[in-house]
Design a binder for these strands. Structure first.
Lengths: 232, 232
DNA sequence: AATGGAATTTGCGTCCGCGCAAGCTTCCGG
DNA sequence: CCGGAAGCTTGCGCGGACGCAAATTCCATT
């Protein structure tokens, strides 16, 4: 990959948006490259924080596990997004695990280097503030949903959100672009794979979705929206 | 209040920690002062974002309400903490309501002014990154608890957290320093005031807590910790 | 084509926590 | 000092979602 190509890639990341080329070059010069194979972890929960990454190619999943091994999925990461933001906030260990779902390629910076770059370029720090603010808002909304909504509503909004973020138009509807098991959905909505399975089956019977092994296609987004927002 | 006194106050806020006096003076000069009486809202959910605040004196509660009027409590704010961080992250409307529980006094800056100050002083932006990172981590942990733990555990960890953050040693144990109703606890743990009441009654019978009208005192923190962590 | 593992479906019994309702206590304002 | 509102407690019945278990389907690999 040429220097200019790399610059164009960096320019489109949430972290380095709207940053002058001169600064981008500086970041590029300091960047380390990292490849992670599908199924491998980029970051393990509890590991000491040493670097922050930006996804160039691939898809990863951020999860958090409690002491009894029960885990929840925090979010999915795609190209342009930040992984391992703890290096930015001064945390000492990573609060979650980042696992590659596909072979992925990332740029990274050691904590020290990034902290220094951030101190010299406030535009970057401001970008980080924006990204973290957005993440924080998302999680607060999910927290509210977990507190106030029933399982079916939560599954509906989660499927809708994923369809929006990683949707792919097909003849049968909007297909979620990456493999998504019942278990995964359960870990995102705070329920069990059994309940997710039952719910999807019921929806399938009504023609709202089609689904298969680790695959979900939304046929009637409207119907899902109706389920997600209230009704009963 | 004199200039120096104000500086000392600002210096101790999470937002302006470790910032040189010259910069502090600049912030102070640009600050507006705001008083909110107990029971009044500093910020209403859905309001356009116009300013960010730092609590000088008082205590406030941040909550979020969904379209059906069900609300959850996001967090409590005390002296030194940021209120209305959306002005920093570029949000256009406030995602939550900030209500004063006591008569409170705050310093504030309009979004534009603060954005400008943050752009010129990366140390401030970095402070904001740290604060947001900490908030984000907190909420993720709560999300995990909501997903994986039973009601009693969630109530236990919440009471423990509040006792740590706003605890006050008394003869009978650690008293939570501000009025905290059953309803409040329910809105923090995603349950109903009935279940909270039953749980507290059960604990009271075992001597783990004492409680009254909007008042909770932790007598045996150990017992609560045991309940919070597993034990099923 | 066969095989083994992973993912999914579905039935059944159980129970945690909710919803409703009634009654009680505490506090505050007049 | 009184009345009303706000907060708290408790009983009762119900049901949504879980847990367990077994069967089935799908897929990758050989």
């Amino acid at each position: 990959m040429g220097h200019q190509v790399d610059l164009d890639i960096l320019k489109r990341t949430e972290l380095l948006q709207g940053v002058p080329d001169a600064v981008l070059s500086e970041f590029l010069a300091a960047a380390l490259r990292r490849r992670v194979a599908a199924g491998e972890a980029l970051i393990n929960q509890g590991d000491p924080v040493d670097a922050v990454f930006v996804v160039i190619v691939g898809r990863l999943r951020v999860s958090q596990t409690n002491s009894e091994g029960q885990q929840i999925i925090i979010r999915y990461l795609g190209p342009g997004q930040i992984a391992g933001y703890s290096a930015l906030t001064g945390g000492d260990v990573h609060p979650g695990t980042v696992l590659a779902l596909e072979d992925s390629h990332l740029f990274g910076w050691s904590s020290a280097v990034f902290q220094e770059l951030m101190a010299r370029h406030s535009a970057i720090a401001i970008n980080v503030v924006k990204v973290l603010g957005a993440r924080y808002n998302e999680v607060k909304i999910r927290l509210r949903q977990m507190s106030t909504e029933r399982v079916e509503q939560r599954i509906a909004s989660t499927v809708l959100r994923l369809a929006e973020q990683a949707g792919h138009r097909t003849a049968r509807g909007i297909e979620i672009a990456f493999p998504l098991s019942r278990q995964d959905l359960a870990e995102m909505t705070g329920t069990t794979l059994h309940t997710v399975s039952r719910t999807l089956s019921a929806w399938e019977e009504k023609g709202i979705v089609t689904s298969g092994r680790r695959r979900v296609v939304v046929a009637q987004a409207d119907a899902l929206k109706a389920i997600a927002s209230a009704e009963k």
